[in-house]
Simulated scan of single mutants.
Amino acid sequence: MDLPIVVGVDGSEPSMRAVDWAADEAALRGVPLRLVHASLWERYEGVSLAQDLVKPSEQVMAEDIARVAAERARLRQAGVKVSIDVLPEEPEYALVRESREAIVMVLGTRGRSGFVEMLLGSVSLTVAAHAACPVIVLRGSHDNQVRAGRRGRVLLGVGEHGTDSAALRFAVQEARLRGATLDVVRAWRCPAHESTDHPLMAGEPARLHEQHAVEVLADALKDVPPDLEPRRRTLEGPVRQVLLAAAHEADLLVVGARRSPERLGLQLGRVAHGVLHHAPCPVAVVPERG
C-alpha cells in the first residue's frame, strides 16, 4: 500500500494553501492524501473558516474544518484519494507521529510576528525538526493561493555530507516529478585569518576554498542520472544567505537536517532553521541519518 502525503489542517489560510499544495503533490506522485486536524478543542485561530460553520461543539467544529479541507482537496485534484482524521491531542505530537507512516508531510506557516508569516509558528518548526519523513513548509505566498511552479526550478543546498544524501534523492525526485531544473548550490567562504594583502598570494586562499566546494559538489552529484543535467553553482558567502538569495528563483528549496538519537531539542541545524524562517519559497526539510 502506498504511503500517503499527510497535511496538517486547522482552518487557517496557511493550512488551506497546504491542502492545495499537498493535493498537487499527491497527484504528481500517484499516492493518497491524508488530512489531519489535531487539537485539544481549546481554541481555533484560523481566519478562513467557512462562515456558515456555526456549531455548538468544538469537536464538531474540528470535524467540519477537516471536511471542508477534504472537499477543497477533491475539487483541486479529483483523482486523488482523500481521507481525514480528527485527533484530540496536541498537533505537534500528533503530526510527528503521523510522519512515521507518511511519504511527505505538508504544513502551512503560522507566524506570530508583526510581519506576515515572517517567523515560523511553533507547530511547523517542531514537526520539521522531528518528523520521520520529509516536511514541506509553505513559504513565500500570502494570498491563499497555490499555483503551479512558475520558475521551473528545484533548489538544493549541498553541505559537507553531500554523498548518499536523502535530501539529494528527494530533490532529484521532485525535479523529475515537476519537469523542473535541479539547481544545486554549494556555499563556500574564505576565513578572514587566511586572507593576505601580499600581491603574490592575493586570491590563493579563496581559490583553494572554492576548489574544495567544486569537489564536494562533484562528489555529491556523481550518481545523479545524467539526463537530469543539474545546474551546479558554487557561491561565496554564508550558507543561509546564499540559499535565501538563490531561493528567489526557485519553486522549492530542499535542505537536509541531520537526526541523531543522542541529541535533544530541535534537530534542524542553523541553515535549515534559518531558511524555514525566511525563505521566499516553500522549503522541504529532509531527515538525514547521523
Rank of each mutant, 00 (worst) to 15 (best):
L119E: 00
H212N: 09
R97D: 14
F115Y: 09
H130Y: 02
A180I: 07
K222E: 13
D223G: 00
E174Y: 10
L95S: 10
L120I: 15
D183E: 11
L156P: 09
E89N: 13
G108D: 05
A218E: 15
M201E: 09
V104W: 04
E215C: 00
H212S: 12
Q173F: 01
T109Q: 02
A187I: 08
G157M: 04
D219R: 14
F115A: 10
M118H: 05
V135D: 08
R178V: 12
M105W: 04
E160C: 00
S195Q: 13
A166Q: 10
I136R: 01
L168M: 09
T181Q: 14
A131V: 05
I136D: 05
R112P: 00
G140K: 05
R97Y: 12
G162W: 00
E89S: 13
A187T: 06
S141G: 13
L125F: 14
L95I: 14
V137H: 02
V214R: 15
V96H: 03
D223F: 04
A129I: 03
R153T: 04
A128P: 05
H209N: 13
V146L: 08
A171Y: 06
P91F: 09
N144T: 01
G114T: 04
H193K: 01
P191L: 03
F115H: 03
R110I: 00
V184W: 03
V96Y: 01
P199I: 07
H193W: 11
P205E: 07
L208C: 01
E101R: 14
S195Y: 04
G179I: 10
A102K: 11
L107W: 04
G121Q: 01
S124A: 15
R112V: 11
R112E: 05
R153D: 01
G152K: 07
L221E: 08
P134S: 07
T196D: 11
S141I: 00
E174P: 05
E194Y: 15
N144P: 00
R169Q: 14
L200A: 15
L95G: 12
M118N: 01
A171P: 11
D164C: 01
Q211R: 14
W188G: 06
S99D: 10
R112S: 07
V185R: 12
I103F: 00
T181K: 13
A129N: 02
R207M: 09
E210W: 08
V214G: 05
F115L: 15
T196R: 10
P191I: 06
R147C: 06
D219V: 08
T196I: 05
H161D: 13
V96Q: 03
E204Y: 09
T126W: 02
R176E: 15
A94E: 12
L155C: 04
M201N: 00
E194T: 11
R139G: 06
C190A: 07
A131N: 09
E90I: 02
Y93S: 11
G203H: 07
R151K: 15
R169V: 02
E98N: 08
P205V: 07
V106E: 07
L168C: 11
H209W: 14
A102L: 13
L119A: 00
E160T: 03
V106H: 08
G203F: 05
R112H: 09
